[in-house]
């Protein structure tokens, strides 16, 4: 029962990864007791489970994901929201108002209008229906301040870092609140636009160098240097 790859080897779709007693993990598929890659990525084996960490992928909705979306349209009893997925999501009026929606009393476009940004969680999704969003949890809802940036969805785990080490470091160093949408949209809110810009520069750097080692240390260094530079300019 051999495997046909080295750890972290770049594999292409259709490449034979393992034969025999193995399980097909992420971005792989099994056929005739053989496991093949289905996306370009880095192959890895974890206790009989063969995974491929995709280098190219798109966001696909999953129940419970926190996402940041743009309101596209105000409908009859809710909104349609673009969450950068193959499907547009729906947000129901009763969910936002947290009471039954009465068309004669409530004007939906005054609550949320086209172009507004929201932080939401995916409440339900299956093959037959478009994803439904909910904002009924603390921290979710309309975004009123801060800046938005977009990264490739496959890079989000890198921005979080091991057990959130990377993201908590950036938050601390830049003095910003950062909300990561799993769909690759990031909200940065700080006291001043300069703070926000600093955090965004760091995230940009992570995206560009996401595959290199010792990244957290390098980003810490980068943030400290940038901060020092700014102190200098103020004087």
């Amino acid at each position: 029962m051999p495997t046909f790859f080295e750890k972290k080897q770049v594999v292409t779709p259709g490449e034979l990864l393992a034969e025999g007693d193995y399980l097909a993990g992420e971005n792989t598929y099994a056929e005739d007791n053989k496991i093949y890659a289905s996306r370009i990525g880095l192959a890895d084996c974890d206790n009989k489970k063969v995974n491929v960490v995709a280098l190219r992928a798109f966001y696909f909705p999953k129940v419970g994901d926190m996402v940041i979306g743009t309101v596209l349209e105000v409908g009859f009893n809710g909104w349609t929201v673009d969450i950068k997925a193959p499907y547009t999501a729906l947000l129901r009026a009763s969910d936002v108002l947290s009471r039954p929606y009465k068309p004669q009393n409530d004007e939906l476009s005054q609550v949320l209008n086209g172009g507004d940004l929201i932080v939401a969680k995916i409440a339900s999704y299956d093959r037959a229906h478009d994803p439904q969003l909910t904002v009924g949890e603390p921290g979710l809802g309309k975004i009123t301040r801060g800046q938005i940036m977009k990264v490739t969805p496959t890079k989000i785990p890198r921005v979080i870092g091991r057990k959130g080490s990377m993201i908590s470091m950036i938050k601390q160093e830049a003095g910003c609140q950062i909300i990561l949408g799993i769909n690759g949209v990031i909200l940065v809110t700080g006291k001043t636009p300069e703070d926000e810009e600093l955090a965004m520069m760091a995230i940009q750097k992570i995206e560009e160098e996401s595959h290199t080692s010792g990244l957290t240390d390098r980003i810490t260094q980068f943030l400290k240097e940038e901060k020092a530079k700014r102190e200098e300019n103020k004087k």
Binding site: P13, N27, S38, R39, A54, R56, F58
Partner: peptide
């Protein structure tokens, strides 16, 4: 493949 669409083979 470059668009990240899952495929059986090229």
């Amino acid at each position: 493949a470059d668009a990240g669409i899952p495929m059986r083979d090229l």
